[in-house]
Amino acid sequence: MANYTLNINGKKQQIDVDPTTPMLWVLRDHIKLVGTKFGCGIAQCGACTIHLGDNAVRSCQLPISAVGDQKITTIEGLSENGDHPVQQAWLEIDVPQCGYCQAGQIMSASALLKRTPNPTDEEIETAMNGNICRCGTYTRIKKAIKTAANSENA
């Protein structure tokens, strides 16, 4: 066990866990932020995507010991009132079916738009290929990313 001070969604959090514990489980089991989802545990599905600094990372493969003082943002902290342009676009296009993958999709999409405000289709596909949607909402995900890109540029 070891003691860590993390910066999660702008708040300092003290956690005492095994250094190998992935951030996914730190968030879900210890901090009780369950918006970040478990899908595979091996960085293949993207359900657990969070932001480390400005980058989208798979929290199931990010041990707490590797975080240091980098800022962590989860779906719960992406915006104050659920009004991040990506979240709004998701509602406008009515993307979700079961909804389980969508937190991860939104975290990947928002990181993409931060880096590449006007992504091409190929750039969207590359950035989003690590996020599985078992319900098959992919065409809507692409549409929503474009909607968000346009609204952010407006």
Partner: peptide
Amino acid sequence: DVKNVDGKKIVTGQPLFGL
């Protein structure tokens, strides 16, 4: 066309699922 009534909860990561 009516939007998913749970849309907002889903996109903000509210606890909804069994897990």
